[in-house]
Structures are given as C-alpha cells and as structure tokens.
Simulated scan of single mutants.
Amino acid sequence: MAKKEVKTNAMRILDREKIIYSHQGYEADGFIDGVHVADKLGLSHELVYKTLVTQTKGREYFTFVIPIEEELDLKKAAKAVGEKALEMLPLKDLTKVTGYVRGGTTSIGMKKNFPVIIQEDAKKLEHIYVSGGRVGTQIKLSPIDLQKVTKGEFKEVVIDHD
C-alpha cells in the first residue's frame, strides 16, 4: 500500500486558500541550512528563501522571508516594520513562539499571524521555495501568493553588498 502523504499545516492552509503550490521532500536528520537544502534539491540559490523571526524588546514578533544567501539588515528590518530596533528571536524560543522548529520554520501558519516582510526582489520571480513547515519539506509557490496568504509586504530588508 502506498504511504499516505502527510501534509503540513502550511500545506493545509495553502489548500484551504486555493493557492497553487508544489512541494519537495529531502532527507534530513535535523537542521540543514538553506544553502545545503537548495544543493540537495538541485535548486538555484536565488529561488530558495529562508524565514527569520525577530523580536522587539517588548516581545513583539516580526517574520522576514529573505534569500538563503542574504543576511537580514536589522536596521532596515526595524524601519520596515516601524520599530526602533529588532533582534533575532533566540533559538530556544523559536518553537514556543512560532510552533515550528529550526529548519522547518515558514511564514505560513505560525501559532499567531505575525507581520511578514518578504524581501523586495522576490516580486520579480515567477516562484520561490520556502520551508514547508517541517524539516525535510520545501514548498514552491509564487511570491505574490506567499504575500497573499501571509498578508505580508514586500520591502528591502537585506544587507547591501555594494
């Protein structure tokens, strides 16, 4: 008998919202960074995005979706969400705050709907890959659909490499 496909919460949300996506699995015994995930799946690094969660001193949370080879500019990120300062969410708090584990975090279907900012350049792409909500799963969808389902905004938030 064929093994039943197990959908993640993120996939169920995309199904419910009638958003077209596909997903790919990969072998993982734990956290693998986005560059290695892209390499494992034979994907262009420019198309694979990682999800980062930040917080204010007052414990307000913001989610950023940026290319795997880029670094979040915390000053630009804070300005993008109208805050004075942001810091990365400590890893020990990730699952408690988002419901996801490191390497399986996606902006789709977190415990609460935190504001989502997607790196501006994503708008130019036909599709991107983001975590599917668990380690070992990537979702391919249009950046516009990701923006719709997360009620996100496109803004410039990565470090300039000029």
Rank of each mutant, 00 (worst) to 15 (best):
E87L: 09
K124D: 13
I108W: 02
E69A: 11
H45Y: 09
F154T: 03
V37T: 14
E126D: 12
L43F: 03
S22L: 14
L14G: 03
E70K: 13
L41C: 12
Y26K: 05
K124S: 11
V53I: 11
F31A: 09
G34F: 02
D33G: 08
G99K: 04
T51W: 02
Q55T: 13
A85D: 03
T137W: 00
V157E: 04
V149Q: 05
E83Y: 05
L14M: 10
V158R: 02
K57P: 10
T54F: 05
A122V: 08
K57S: 15
G82Y: 09
E71N: 15
G104F: 14
L41M: 04
D162K: 09
T56Q: 06
K151A: 08
I144R: 00
L14A: 07
Y61E: 02
G99S: 06
A10L: 15
V65P: 03
F64C: 11
P143D: 01
K148M: 07
V97Y: 11
L52S: 11
G109Q: 08
F114G: 04
K40T: 15
T137L: 15
E87Y: 15
K3R: 13
E60K: 13
K140D: 06
R12K: 15
K75M: 06
V37G: 03
Q138W: 00
K75D: 04
A10M: 09
G25M: 14
G132E: 09
V149F: 06
A80G: 10
T8M: 05
K96E: 15
K140G: 06
M11G: 09
G136N: 14
S44K: 14
G30C: 12
R59H: 15
L89Q: 05
I117E: 01
K111A: 04
G104Y: 04
V97C: 10
G136K: 12
K18N: 04
T54G: 09
V65F: 05
